[in-house]
Amino acid sequence: MFERFTDEAKQAVVSAQQQARDLRADRIEPVHLLLALAAVPGPGREAIEAAGLDHHRLRTAAERSGTALDADALAALGIDLDQVRAATEATFGPGALDGGAAPRGHLRFTAGSKKALELSLRLAMRRPGRRVIDSGCLLHGVLSLADPVVVRVLHQLDGDPDVLRARIEPDVA
């Protein structure tokens, strides 16, 4: 399906792999696609930035609550992840708590990420004229999923997935 992707959309898909790796995920989740779209120049990034968001802020929010080791969820249970991390690092060395899950090799897309790619393809096919998938379509696909992690990360930054999606709607729908 990637033959219909624009160069920057392809770059975003490649970057998603790196975003996942940087967050020590073992799969490419929709939130990693979102981070990639914020990093790679193109219509997707323009929409994200027009909404007052950027890669750095999204990445910080994803680190906080978009990974399996979910600091906010643990905080709600009365567990201070920063304290646990400091204690384990004091005993077992730097990165001890985060080193165990270091991903290796080629990361695969989760079912949610595949679905996002499908949705963006479907959207591009509906578009009159050139049937190519640009990073705006990709962003639209990611936001259409209502993936809980993506929604959480956006909410944390006072962003609304539907508002952001509507922002790119006129271009792609």
């Binding site: 399996a68 080791l69 979910d70 969820a73 643990l74 709600a76 249970l77 567990i79 646990v84």
Partner: peptide, 8 residues
């Protein structure tokens, strides 16, 4: 919450 605890 359960997932976060399990992961930790």
């Amino acid at each position: 919450a359960v997932r976060a605890l399990r992961e930790l």
